[in-house]
Design a protein around this nucleic acid. Sequence first.
DNA 1: CTGGATCCCCAATGATACTG
DNA 2: CAGTATCATTGGGGATCCAG
Lengths: 126, 126
Amino acid sequence: MSLVTNTDVPEPIGAASPTCLLRDVLDRVGDKWSVLVMALLGDGPRRYSELQRSIEGISQRMLTLTLRSLERDGLVRRTVTPTSPPRVDYALTPVGETLSVEVSSLIRWAERHREYVATSRLRYDA
Amino acid sequence: MSLVTNTDVPEPIGAASPTCLLRDVLDRVGDKWSVLVMALLGDGPRRYSELQRSIEGISQRMLTLTLRSLERDGLVRRTVTPTSPPRVDYALTPVGETLSVEVSSLIRWAERHREYVATSRLRYDA
DNA sequence: CTGGATCCCCAATGATACTG
DNA sequence: CAGTATCATTGGGGATCCAG
């Protein structure tokens, strides 16, 4: 189960070997909105406007950029219905589903422990 | 299992209610280094210098700031042994252990799917 | 409704030098 | 060894306007 120190000369974590995209993938999780978008889509497909209403404080620009990145990574599928006005639905791909499980788990962790974190900060700042 | 849409009028995810620190906690996971530090400490306590050597590309400044934040949040415990030269060990708190499990799971996801993501990007860019 | 294009800013990060 | 202090940078993200 050792993640990085299972060899005598441990490879630095996040090392930039040609095939190592750990940093890239973590950056996806690390950006401000991807985790929330993935969690929402985990409940089922959503329209662009639904996502925007559901995510507090996201701008059009960032929602679009986030969705484009997720689509590029093969995690989200974009479906355009050329009606007037146009309708665009976003859904997870099969691989996206597996990531959604992870990030949803993370969000539940945050919800379970946010009170602990809050009191820890108060204590530390005193 | 619904994460955010289990009510008729769904609460915006990440909403800034007084007690909602979801954003803060996610920001901790979202910064560039916390995830890697938590994953490493999941294998057991580490000295400052061990962490620095193990994490590719982290600066002294960022390692210190990251550890301070994690300590402030009650996720990491800092132990100083006042020898000469001084020795400082970092270990996960019990709550930190539970977060480490989550982020390690995330890292394993990234490792399992980085090839898929890479090829997805190539295809998208074409 | 679903974006694309622009401008702009600041906070996160890096680099460097110094210290008990 | 384990930091602290300072400065420079940059790109992530917000605001706004426009368009099919």
